[in-house]
Simulated scan of single mutants.
Amino acid sequence: MEHFRFEGSRIEEIVVYFGFDFRVDPFADVKVKRLSKAFATGEVDYIAGNIAKDVQWHFVGEAELQGREAVTNMLEPMRGVVAEEYRTKNIITAGNKAVVEGTMIMPEENGQEKLYSFCDIYTFDHTDSNIIKELSAYLIELPSKEEANKQ
């Protein structure tokens, strides 16, 4: 799709949109919320079904994964693990990008809980708006309420 801006009879600007554009998708927030819910509820199959075969997954400060198989293997221990609490502070969508910011409390194997703050930056495929092409994840472990009260 093209957009032309004229100055008199002269074309001043041409903007060309390729592929999918979240700015005109009224369901963009719904799609991103559904992906976030899948992470919060350990729905590994849903996540794996919505990532590109050649996905790039960046855990900022930790690991970088390439490809659906590597990401699915990394997610497997999350299968069925449900966050005790999951709060989304912001969802921002523009073009083929989406940013989700929030906090979550996750159960640990020892029965304890850990509090995290997160910010995920999604880049969706231009040809299929439901497919994640790249994800950068910022995850920060926060002190528990008990630890914070001791300080």
Rank of each mutant, 00 (worst) to 15 (best):
I47C: 02
Y122M: 01
T103F: 07
E113P: 06
E141W: 08
D21A: 02
A52H: 06
F124I: 02
D128T: 01
I11N: 02
E43Y: 02
F6H: 09
I140F: 12
K97Q: 09
K37F: 14
E134L: 04
F59K: 12
D21I: 00
I91D: 04
S129F: 05
I92Q: 06
S117Q: 15
S9D: 14
S136V: 11
T41L: 08
E134K: 06
I91N: 05
E13V: 00
E101V: 11
L65M: 07
F22M: 08
T127N: 12
M1Q: 14
G80F: 05
E7D: 15
I14L: 14
S136P: 01
Y116V: 08
V100N: 06
S36N: 12
E146N: 02
A70S: 09
Y17C: 11
E147N: 06
D29R: 14
F4K: 14
A40W: 04
T41V: 10
K97M: 08
F59V: 13
Q56A: 13
N90Q: 13
G111C: 08
K145L: 10
I51R: 00
A94S: 14
S144F: 01
M74H: 14
K114C: 09
R10V: 12
P107S: 09
F27E: 14
G80V: 05
A38T: 06
N50Y: 03
I132V: 15
V55S: 00
Y138M: 11
M1A: 15
